[in-house]
Design a protein around this nucleic acid. Structure first.
Lengths: 322, 322
DNA sequence: CTGAAAGCGCTTACAG
DNA sequence: CTGAAAGCGCTTACAG
């Protein structure tokens, strides 16, 4: 591998000037610069990042802080990581997953997710390197999130537009803001369409197929809903099973909608209408944002929301009320 | 961050001896060693990998060579990468995805996949660093693969044991060895059970739900098969749809089996019997193997096969013939 | 078993 | 606009 010294020798300049061409090309006379650039080209010069890292204290490595309670084999997280790694790799940044808060190993920046408010605060205080958060916070941290409120609103609106007025909802019962936001969206859409809110149509559920099944069964047996909005696809799968259990044909007799859309564009089954989160794109955005922040530590803090989009799988899943 | 110099000062030794404690602890008198270890502990010393990288020419970074035709957002690949990153991250190795054969950036090792024979050869010749291959080759490269032959054999055997004798098969029509191996397993199982092979029961198909549907339809309409072994889950989904299309109840009138099992342990639907590949574990093994090879470049070449396992989703998917 | 010197390939001040 | 010197935190020979 050619070094800067080799390039300097070939171009007849000092190593320092070669370094300048790389780091602040404008400060070099263009004639000199061209000489050096062609020497770099001839020698196939590529900087030794280890040497650079040693002196600049930058490693060209990014850490993904993923709390232990998140399962890395989860498709949602894997898709996110795929998006992140796509952008990082293209920029020759390596990355490593970090399951613990502390690390004695250097990195240039951190992408964090699944933190509560207290931890957001910690992130701001303890990390003295660039951070980007997948989530929401009022603190001065770059963050990117899904617009859950809008997702809940748009889906409810869509169901209403298909002629349903009695819309059940299964809310995820977790200490997290996203189910609340989706639920708020549902309520707002009802208000905007002058449809009364019926608390009997609401169930809280653990985010599992099994509990979704149970809660959907309750709604199907005890109410006259004609549509059911499940705040995750996992719940929706349980609801589909519950519909089969009570012999209601989907979507003729009961329309079922989910939320997430992570797996379901890969799998043909089940034919579920859902709110697809742009997870891969969010991953890409997290990485881009972090790299921008690393380049420019004093730039204004960014807050971005990505809209989820309704995804209708096929004709059999249309929410039309006959 | 404390450096080796700080540790040396505190322990009253030279930097060199601190370095020895890290790299060849046996060469240091245990008394000295303990003094140094406790100094390292007090100062929370952790080596600066950039400095180490510079002098040892090792980067603590691994490249994943993923040919461009492979989609990184594919669940199979994401699961594999999750397994790989799990092990690498635990060992503080960063990694980056590499879509092109050439890289001017240093790394300590490469995990490659999806290569043809010619490329395997290239891998051996061009890379002068440790490599591990996800796949098969007779060349002197560490490799890890799925035992596809056994997967095909075991599934066929299982279907036979459930009383079926007329077993259709949809083979993936790709320039790749794995469908052939699975198909061979099918044929071998038939022979071992003295069941005649019927070429009319065989269809070749693109690995898509749509083509799976078409080919399954052909088999269901033109033959008397009572079971259908699809060499991928995607094909099996098409087959399930074809069964619905012709009004055959699964599994009462037609049993359907797939192969892969990547998504289907996450999703409750569809209830499909399949051969689950241990993809996450394979990813972990690829990374472990590479790290071992990096530590010990002259060790014997390893060839490992992972057995896929039959996964029966639930009672409705049992392959029992009434 | 331990240490003093040189150097890995860059960048950061400082000169000119 | 360009260069000579020093140093980042380690390891590799070489001594003793």
């Amino acid at each position: 591998m050619a070094t800067m010294k080799d390039v300097a020798l070939k171009a007849g300049v000092s190593v320092m000037t070669v370094s300048r061409v790389i780091n602040s090309p404008d400060s070099v006379k263009s004639e000199t610069k061209n000489k050096i650039l062609s020497a770099m080209n001839d020698l196939k010069f590529h900087p030794n990042y280890a040497a650079k890292a040693l002196v600049t204290n930058r490693t060209r490595t990014v850490h993904l802080l993923i709390p232990n309670q998140l399962e890395t084999a989860d498709p949602y997280l894997m898709t996110l990581i795929a998006g992140i790694s796509d952008v990082l790799s293209k920029n020759y940044y390596a990355f490593l997953l970090r399951r613990e808060w502390d690390s004695h190993y250097k990195c240039d920046g951190v992408i964090a997710m699944g933190l509560n408010e207290e931890e957001d605060q910690q992130l701001l205080e303890k990390m003295n390197i660039p951070c980007v958060l997948f989530g929401d916070t009022n603190l001065s941290i770059d963050c990117i999130n899904v617009n859950d409120q809008k997702g809940g609103y748009d889906m409810t609106n869509y169901i209403l537009q298909n002629g349903h007025e009695k819309i059940g909802i299964i809310v995820i019962d977790e200490d997290n803001t996203f189910p609340v936001k989706r639920y708020n969206g549902y309520q707002q859409a009802l208000r905007d369409n002058d449809i009364p809110f019926n608390p009997n149509y609401v169930r809280y559920s653990n985010n599992t197929e099994g509990d979704g099944f149970t809660k959907a069964l309750e709604l199907l047996e005890s109410t006259d809903i004609t549509a059911l909005f499940c705040l995750s696809d996992v719940l929706a799968l349980g609801a589909l099973r519950a519909a089969r259990e009570v012999g209601k044909v989907v979507p003729k007799e009961i329309s079922i909608a989910g939320f997430d859309g992570v797996l379901f564009d890969q799998v043909a089954e089940p034919h579920l209408t859902t709110m697809k989160q742009p997870v891969y794109e969010i991953g890409q955005a997290l990485a881009s944002e972090l790299l921008t922040r690393i380049e420019n530590p004093f730039k204004k803090v960014t807050k971005k929301l990505f809209d989820p989009k309704i995804m209708i799988r096929n004709s059999t899943s249309k929410l039309n009320k006959d």
